[in-house]
Each structure stands twice: as C-alpha cells, then as structure tokens.
Design a protein around this nucleic acid. Sequence first.
DNA 1: TCAACTTTGTGCATGGCTTCACAAACGTCT
DNA 2: AGACGTTTGTGAAGCCATGCACAAAGTTGA
Lengths: 226, 226
Amino acid sequence: MSADPALRREIPDATVARLPEYLRTLSRLAEDGVPSVSSEELAAAVGVRSAQLRKDLSHLGSYGVRGVGYDVETLALEISRALGLTEDWPVAIVGMGNLGHALASYSGFVTKGFRIVALFDDDPALVGERVVDIAIRPLAELDDKHAVDPISIGVIATPAQAAQAVCDRLVGAGISSILNFAPAVLSVPAGVDVRRVDLSTELQILAFHAQRKALAAGHLGTAVVS
Amino acid sequence: MSADPALRREIPDATVARLPEYLRTLSRLAEDGVPSVSSEELAAAVGVRSAQLRKDLSHLGSYGVRGVGYDVETLALEISRALGLTEDWPVAIVGMGNLGHALASYSGFVTKGFRIVALFDDDPALVGERVVDIAIRPLAELDDKHAVDPISIGVIATPAQAAQAVCDRLVGAGISSILNFAPAVLSVPAGVDVRRVDLSTELQILAFHAQRKALAAGHLGTAVVS
DNA sequence: TCAACTTTGTGCATGGCTTCACAAACGTCT
DNA sequence: AGACGTTTGTGAAGCCATGCACAAAGTTGA
C-alpha cells in the first residue's frame, strides 16, 4: 500500500480548512524553538478541541508519539506536504485597483509556497505600472503562452460586473484554481475550484449576531409582549 | 407569541452564512425590475439546491406564495431585517496600511447598513491623512468617548503581531463584533464575535485541491504501485 | 364553481462532522 | 525488567446540515 495516507485517503474538507491554522501555529512554535507539543497544547493555541485536532491529524497519518506529543518540525513538514506547499504555486492577480494593489503587496504571499508571477488590468492608466517589481499587463496577454509563465492560481480582484468574464478567461487559459474577491457568484465547469472571500458577507454575518445580542440584552420589545 | 420568527427562533449558522448571498441576488433582480422569483430560479442564480433555499427561508418565516414564488422586494426586505441591515452599523478600521486603505475605499461598505466612522493607526506617517473623507487617528483616541462616535464593528487590518493588542483595545472600548484580517488567532471574552478573513488560508486550501487534481490527472506514481 | 397545474413549506432519511471515552503505545523511574 | 503516568489514535455516539418527496395551498382558465 501507499506510504502516504495523505494521498491515499480522502481528507475531509473541514479538516483541510483547519490545516493552515495548525501549520501557522506550528511555524510560530518552531521559530520560538519549541521542540514538541501535545495535542492539548496545540489545540488550545489554535482554539479547537484536542480530540478534533487529533482526528484531523490522523487523516494525514500517524506522526505523534504516545506519551509525548508531536515533533513540531516534523508535523509542520507533513502538513505542508499534505497541503501541497512543498511545491511552488505561481499566482496571477487580475484587477489592480485598491484591493489588487494591497493583495500584491501582501507579505503572506512570499512566505511559503506562493509566488506572484503576473498582474493584469485592462485600465490603460494602470498598465505598465510596476508593483512588487512586476509590470501590470493587459488581460489579453493571458492567452499568449509565450508572454506569460505558467499560472496555477488566479486571483480575481475586479468589480463584480467584470468577474465572470475574467473568470472565463482564466479558465480558458487552463487555470483551475480561482480565488474570487468580487461579490459575485461565478459559474465554472466541473473540475475548477472557486473560493470566494467577501467582505460584505462577513460584515452582514457580524451584523446578524450583533443584532441578536442587542435584542437579547436590552429591549426585547416586540418579542416579550406576546 | 412574537410576530417575527426571525427573532423568536434560532437561525442555523449555515443559513445565516447564505442569507447575504440570497440578498445580493435579490437586490440585483429588484434592480432589473423582476417582480417575483420561484425558489428554483433563485437557487439556480445563487448556486444552491432549491430545497435548501426554501428551508433556509422557512427559518425567517413564511414569505412565499404557493404556486407563484416569492415577491422579490418583500423577500429582500425580510432578509435585510433578519440580518439586521435595517439599522446602521458604525464601523471602525484599525491599521491603515495597504489593506486598510483598500478596505476603507471599498464600495461594499457604503451600500447598505454599514458606515465607516473612524480610522485608526499609530504610525505617525499615517496619522492625519484623510481617506474617504475621514482622518486617520492614533489608536489611543479609541478610549476617548468624547472624541469618537459609537462603534459597533471593529475591523483589524494590522500585522499579525499587533492584532491581539488591538483586539483587546477594541473589546475594552465595548466593541463586541470584530472582523480580523490579520493571520492570527484572537482570544476574546465570551460574548464577543470574531470572524477571520485570511488570504493565505484560502490560498492553501486551493493549493491542496490543486495538488489533488494534479496527482489524480497525471503522475499518480506512488499511489497505484500498491 | 371546479378542475388542473404550479410551487411552497416541511417531515423524514441520509451523510458528514464533532465530541466522548478508552485501549494501545510510549517514555520514565526505580 | 517492570510498574506507572502520560498522550495518542480511533471506535462509537450524538448532532447538525443537506437532500428527497409530498401534502397543503395558492393561481389560472373554463
């Protein structure tokens, strides 16, 4: 059988979503020179239950030592491998307005596994400008295989109206992983992954809970007067 | 009993997370002059199953008409009320680097329910600068009740190291809804809601699936050779 | 008024995720 | 070497969310 459970078994989505958090915390521990952690300690640092952490990690394989815990460096490496961060993922950003600029300058990219290789925008005022040492190009060049390095992940930071058209072009260029910051639902063929990050959705969810708290604490006016 | 099921019953988190999407789509339909939609149509536009949409909406109350569908304007209003968007939520942004600037300029704020009332940063080079007609102030002024309007929601757009300290100040100032863009786990007292938006987490999840696709499509080397 | 058609709201079954609880496994100390 | 304390890995149970299928309720047309 395969030596690597991460490739053999199916890792639940809920687990995959937590792995980056584990990895971040482990990296910090490694920097601090901590050699090993128990599931209890790591779980507390991340804000989950220790049982959940152990079950999550069990999907990757068996990297803990009973009675001791997990070796920080080893576990960080295994999570990196499971997430695919041992290879380099070339990223392109489309839409270089305020958000696109902020994303390109964001330090989170360079740190591990991701590398920005291209910036696109059709606004003539932006084309040619250099951000983090990369020139902004018109989107049409995306299709030119000779002009553009291979791209694994496309980031959409355009206004909502343009998002679907940009998405279609990215998919047409063979990109099958898309991170969408535009407040729009994208339709893509099967096999293409889209993840959406939306500021106003998050704010609205916060508003819902804030309202609930306000109603519960203070004036539950209409609710109590049967 | 109460007339408003949204206040009476508990709405599942999974449903709350989808309501903003429904609302966005309904708003677009309303702009286009569409008077009513069936659950089938709306669900297709949002990308969910119609049964799920109906079950979600049933948690808010019974606003559909059998044989016809939902009145677009009415349903949009009811979702707005459930989410608490009929009131105004004053927002403060802390950390006015690239990301903070982009967020402040982001049009998603002004549209509905949210209003930026304060910008904070301790960098002397930034203090005093005006963004969207609001002056950036040092964080210390947050505690000065006379200098700052009431704030419902705090947005953290600082580097990770500063996030917990900023969070503590926000909580100290009575803010119980926080949107965190910094890659850090925040610990807060009970009753405070924190939602995190993290670029690198999203990229890493995409990388995981991209790796899976790459392995499945091409070289499934180690996996097949039992 | 009544029959035919459409669409909602929901009970029920299904599936996945989380939590519990404990046996197995490891290190340590005598 | 053997007993003891600690921590992992995992079966089992419980919980929440999703999807199915249909009765109830409404509209339309004759």
